[in-house]
């Protein structure tokens, strides 16, 4: 009989936004296909540290557990990623789990990503339809546009691209790659394009696209493989053209 394999997990605990932080280590029973969410659930079921000290279950965000709701982003061994797809067997131990650092902390691993949703409002990330009553079919969209737009519309607002961006920090209000990519998506839609200039203007405001410094971390960190750097480049091109033409032609 093989001895039971253990998983050592170290979690950054913080009772609230204003409380001090500390690390707690846990020793969990290994099982096949174990992921970080399972580790956190194990701790909730038996909230005792490796040293035998009683503690509280860990607060964290999660929902779909299949990498499509965007909830469970956190720092796992220092990297921003989704906890549900972070397999224990592929991680170096002790597995260090910490909350994302670029968003206000709620408790333990839970953070507040409202900033992203506010940014979506700021750039009018929607199609301006007249109403939900029956107005017939939508505009024709070529398969080519669909193939470009579909990957962009896969953005789950997890915030990983903001977390890894050196330009996103307490000094500025950079909206981040995800939002810029959404602007590209809505600007390429025939109806969405009707708000194109407003969206671009919003992105030329404070914290706008100019804050991007091309470190290109976003595209590596995106769990959905969205071509973020391509989006930023395209929106950048549209933005300066609009600024130049607006100045030249009024």
């Amino acid at each position: 009989m093989a001895e039971t394999k253990q998983v050592i997990v170290s979690v950054k605990r913080q009772a609230g936004p204003k409380e001090g932080a500390r690390w707690e280590e846990f020793s969990l029973r290994w099982r096949p296909s174990m992921n970080v969410i399972i580790c956190l659930r194990d701790i909730a079921e038996n909230p005792v540290t490796r040293g035998g000290q009683k503690t509280t279950p860990i607060s964290y965000d999660s929902n779909c557990l299949e990498e499509i709701c965007g909830s469970c982003a956190m720092l796992i061994n220092g990297r921003a990623r989704m906890a549900c797809s972070a397999l224990v067997d592929q991680l170096e131990q002790p597995i260090r789990i910490a909350p994302m650092s670029k968003f206000p902390l709620v408790r333990d691993l839970a953070v507040d990503r409202q900033f992203m949703f506010e940014s979506l409002k700021r750039v009018k990330a929607w199609i301006p339809i007249d109403g939900t009553y029956n107005l017939g079919e939508g505009p024709r969209v070529s398969p080519e546009i669909q193939e470009k737009g579909y990957p962009l519309s896969n953005c789950i607002s997890c915030g990983n691209c903001l977390e890894v961006c050196p330009q996103v920090n307490e000094h500025n209000q950079f909206v981040g790659a995800a939002i810029i990519s959404q602007v590209r998506l809505f600007n390429m839609h025939p109806t969405g394009a009707m708000n194109k200039s407003e969206r671009l203007a919003a992105l030329m405001g404070p914290g706008g696209i100019q804050e991007c410094a091309n470190a290109q971390n976003c595209v590596h960190a995106c769990p959905k493989g969205i071509p973020l750097t391509e989006s930023i480049a395209e929106v950048n091109r549209d933005a300066w053209k609009q600024a130049l033409l607006g100045w030249l032609a009024g």
Binding site: I127, I129, T132, L135, E137, S153, F186
Partner: peptide, 9 residues
């Protein structure tokens, strides 16, 4: 049709 008008890809 409505979803199409809302820009669903």
């Amino acid at each position: 049709d409505l979803l199409d008008r809302m820009g669903v890809m």
